[in-house]
Design a protein around this nucleic acid. Structure first.
Lengths: 207, 207
DNA sequence: CCCGCGCAGTGACCAAAGTCGCTTCCTGCT
DNA sequence: AGCAGGAAGCGACTTTGGTCACTGCGCGGG
């Protein structure tokens, strides 16, 4: 059994699982918690590649091709990781041919996700990206009230900026602007979307 | 044998192998020629994801996860494709457990490549991206002459712009600017890099 | 209670990217 | 020769993104 050969590791909020460029010697599976995968630039900017929750694995690729980690990973909350060494996992894959196929679909999802990021980065403005994530949040976490759809931003402006590939200030500014346009109200992290249609409409516009 | 179940297809320059969003029913392997994978935006902009040569495969992912193509592919020259249906390839994978592992390393390379694009898009300017591709070209195709390292741009400014995720004019402008700075000479598609060190130096600068 | 700190708001400013409109050059075709 | 179409050059302009410097708030620890 694979579990027998695995190791459990605990990470507290903000702790690095691994850094870009490090050699990789095993597969990380998230048993509990939340992990962010990201790239860092020389001037300190960050670009988030994905946020993964319990049940998902991180950094499958270096396990197979033997290369270094292409990005860094950090725990966003108390996180428990199950770690399986490369040797063990490779052996396991050869014994169970359906496993790598399964992994391929996982990697596939990751690849589609990356292509999505590229699409956003090269075709859309920060404004559109912000609107799009606001709409997603409204749909997944929003509560309907008399004033509109209400929800909390899941993280600081800084964190949000990292995910959109930009800086804190632009989040502020764009939220302000949307408020000025009457589409939503902002109170600290509390967002009230007053006009979902209006927001969606802005997305569909060609540029 | 797998070859027995394969189909050969011919594509002429500019012909589409498949388009983003279409369902996928098999694996394409390039027997001869050159293929470009790209995304298209509503306003006609393009972003190149990769350029693949003979011996490489394209669109491995949809074969495994059954989803639609995440991007479009076009032949850049006379191209011959070997096509294997999903069913056949999946069956083949189960018989030969080492095959999906091999595919994983291919997909891994692709993933690293995409991460690289994301890094460039979110951390670097067009100027830097241009310099970087010029240096690559100089290294791979350049001939040393008395005036410097000489080579031809492999494609139109438009095509180059697509690869860098920008527009034609910025290629012109940045080439001009580099010329004005005395780093290279431009004559139509003929480039003469006069100062490789100077160019490289510009890349290392923080922003 | 006050201090420090992290987070957010904001205006001034600057640089990069993109758009438009037009010109020029080349090439192939009739 | 003349024309059409594609590729490139180029200037003027707008928009977007990013930087800087500062203010203000809220909260927890000393």
């Amino acid at each position: 059994m694979l579990a027998a050969r695995s190791v459990r590791k605990l990470f507290s909020t903000g702790e690095l699982l691994f850094s870009e460029g490090e050699p990789c010697n095993g597969l990380h599976i998230i048993a509990r918690g939340k992990v962010r995968l990201f790239k860092t630039s020389v001037n300190g900017r960050e670009q988030v590649l994905s946020v993964n929750l319990a049940g998902e694995s991180v950094a499958e690729i270096p396990v197979f091709d033997g290369g270094p980690y292409p990005a860094s990973a950090v725990a966003l909350e108390e996180t428990e990781i199950v770690f399986i060494s490369r040797r063990d996992f490779n052996a396991y894959c050869l014994e169970h041919p359906e496993v790598p196929l399964k992994v391929l679909t996982v990697v596939g999802a990751r690849l589609r996700n990356l292509v999505g990021i590229i699409e956003e980065l090269s075709f859309t403005t920060i404004r559109q990206r912000l609107i799009s994530t606001l709409l997603k949040l409204a749909q997944s976490e929003g509560r309907k009230t008399t004033r509109g759809i209400e929800f909390q931003l899941p993280a600081s402006h800084q964190e949000l900026a990292n995910q959109l590939g930009t800086v804190r200030e632009l989040i502020s500014r764009n939220l302000m602007r949307l408020h000025a346009e009457g589409l939503l109200d902002v109170d600290a992290r509390q967002i009230v979307v007053k006009d979902v249609e209006g927001l969606s409409a802005l997305l569909d516009m060609a540029s």
